[in-house]
Design a protein around this nucleic acid. Structure first.
Lengths: 351, 351
DNA sequence: AAGATTAACGCAAGCGCATACGTAAATATT
DNA sequence: AATATTTACGTATGCGCTTGCGTTAATCTT
């Protein structure tokens, strides 16, 4: 209810002193400080963050932004878990999280992005696989601190926090190879999506490392349950003994389709996912997958952001969070595959 | 890069004029206005929201806050969908969304809540079933505009946006009754949780409306997959032909347990959920449930918030969003139930 | 004990906008 | 044509806090 000025009058000191007391600045007696703090809470002091920001040129707000292609987003548990991690860590540091869902408009030019134009935030934590590199570069040019989460581009001069997609994928593929599989198909998402690339690369790593031909890779323009189903239909043409999906949603779709085709998992076919979303363990055939600590990804991003704020001149950093292989029952020893008559849904997959 | 003052100098007008032009205020020639707007975008004008807020006493920020009991939160797709709706609607109105995850500290006293003390937001959209009424009342007393989403308490003087839990539950129960079921058990969450209460009440409505005894209700302290499993174990003791879960997560848990016990669904037992989360349709036995338009719930909350802001004196409002029955294959005509030997997990359920 | 240093505070100038009020020109009124 | 009204803009103050600088009193030198 009361302002700093009122507090000052009530105590007979100047508002400069109040400010110093409240902000833990030196230059006043400790007993006075504690008296001020006491009175502040007694009078229910409410300061104006706006005035403070105007003076200090710091908003204490940081933006968590997601850019997604048109279509459902929140259904993606990935981003929302990262968000929680970000919020948790920022809160702990005394900062506040602003959420922005980027649309087609703002992605064109960061200078037109309201949050940037209005200087509403001290910086941005950027998520979403499809953010154009040019956008990030411009943002950086504008002098806005940025850190990327779950995305990375070497063409971009900003910090990034990613998980070890490649290593995880490699471990997963090695697990599958160890089970005796040789004919494997990878069902993947868009090729320009960072983590998608890395995961595919990890799969390839494993095969090459074992002295084998790299697996066939089917790309699609999404990584949903539905595309998982559709790509599975295509994948079966190659009569694989294992299908490596690039994430759990696709793996579930693939598994769903396979079961409908009368295939037993893992008896006739092994299927693996990636991410370890909550449902993976509860799926009809619990998914062998790679755990990505999404919340921790967010926390790490927030911490990196704070570090960047503290030292704007530090060299660009790329932080890699480990992933772990989770073996469940959707993968098993190589079977004798019998491919039934397939009704393949119409889908244009790009090799 | 440039400020309002610079723009003013560049054009040889006063900054008052600039301000008027930018804010669409009357009192200047239209051609001048457009010239200013043009120059503004040419010079890449960046205004200070802090200065603006200080002058107007409006932050253009609104807080979306969730209060959750200790434990995993983001796994709850409910709240994150609401959040998306809120963001979408607020963005459209030119406002920005701040995310706050309330912890034990801030819930004690809203006056100590940083976001409130610092006047960082114009108001709060509050989600989470466990927010104490006293907290809301104090918030209201402090003069902070508040609207509740997916929660309501008649002891509270603030606006609320809820979905038609009771009507949806009633429709669902009537559907089950129509299938011939008479011995039904409701598995539910905490009794002090609004939507939980309403849904139970809706179930009871249907039974009473059909001239039947109300169904047995088993309460628990959570509404997760795991509690669904546990309560199902208890429920089976009553040899029900139908189990009505208070949400989809519990229904899936229940279904999981029942299948493990060798029960066919819906052959031996019908199970229903509530919410229609994404997985419901893809569950082994696709769930009969009630669709709650979570995103729309969020949008409605944001709209109500805007209305409240526009007219602080308007009487308290309670907005009810319709729900719709979704019939899938987890419910079927009443079977001949055969109860196998049960291994009941240890769980203390409160009647 | 006199000067030098430090500590504890007040003073006042901003920070970058919005806006009430004032003024001059343009338009309307009779 | 003289006055009243409106329009179009500039002037200047204030929003509530932070902070550099100044002042006084307290502590430290030698």
């Amino acid at each position: 209810m009361s302002t700093v000025k009122q507090l000052a009058e009530s105590l007979g000191v100047s508002n400069a002193t109040i400010s110093r007391a409240l902000n833990g600045k030196p230059g006043l007696a400790e007993d006075l400080r504690s008296k001020i703090l006491e009175e502040a809470s007694r009078l229910n002091l409410r300061r104006s963050s706006a005035a403070r920001s105007l003076s200090t040129a710091q908003t204490e707000h940081v933006c968590f932004a997601v850019y997604h292609l048109p279509g459902p987003l929140a259904s993606d548990p990935f981003y929302s878990e990262i968000l929680m991690g970000v919020e948790q860590e920022l809160r702990q540091a005394g900062l506040h999280t602003m959420l922005e869902v980027l649309g087609e408009e703002e992605i064109k030019d960061p200078a037109r992005w309201r949050i940037v134009r209005d200087q509403r935030v001290d910086g941005i934590i950027l998520n979403g696989p499809f953010v154009p590199a040019s956008f990030i570069v411009k943002l950086h040019t504008l002098g806005v601190p940025v850190v990327l989460v779950d995305n990375f581009s070497s063409h971009t001069p900003v910090d990034a926090v990613v998980c070890d997609d490649r290593g995880g994928a490699r471990a997963l593929a090695e697990h599958v190879l160890k089970l005796g599989h040789r004919r494997a198909v990878v069902i993947a998402g868009p090729q320009d999506w960072y983590s998608n690339q890395e995961r595919c690369a990890g799969f390839v790593d494993a095969f090459l490392g074992a002295g084998l031909e790299p697996p066939q890779i089917l790309h699609s323009d999404a990584t949903t349950f539905e595309t998982g189903q559709a790509l599975m239909a295509l994948a079966l043409k190659s009569k694989p003994t294992a299908v490596l999906a690039v994430n759990d949603a696709m793996a579930m779709g693939a598994s769903f389709y396979a079961r409908e085709m009368g295939l037993g998992i893992p008896k006739d076919l092994s299927i693996t996912g990636f991410d370890d979303v909550e449902m993976s363990a509860r799926w009809v055939t619990p998914l062998t997958t790679v755990r990505v600590q999404k919340r921790y990804l967010g926390r790490a991003a927030a911490r990196q952001f704070l570090a960047r704020l503290a030292d704007p001149e530090a060299p660009q950093q790329r932080i890699n969070i480990a992933t772990t292989l989770i073996e469940r029952s959707s993968s098993g020893a190589v079977p004798n595959l019998k491919v039934p008559n397939l009704k393949v849904p119409n889908l244009k997959a790009k090799k």
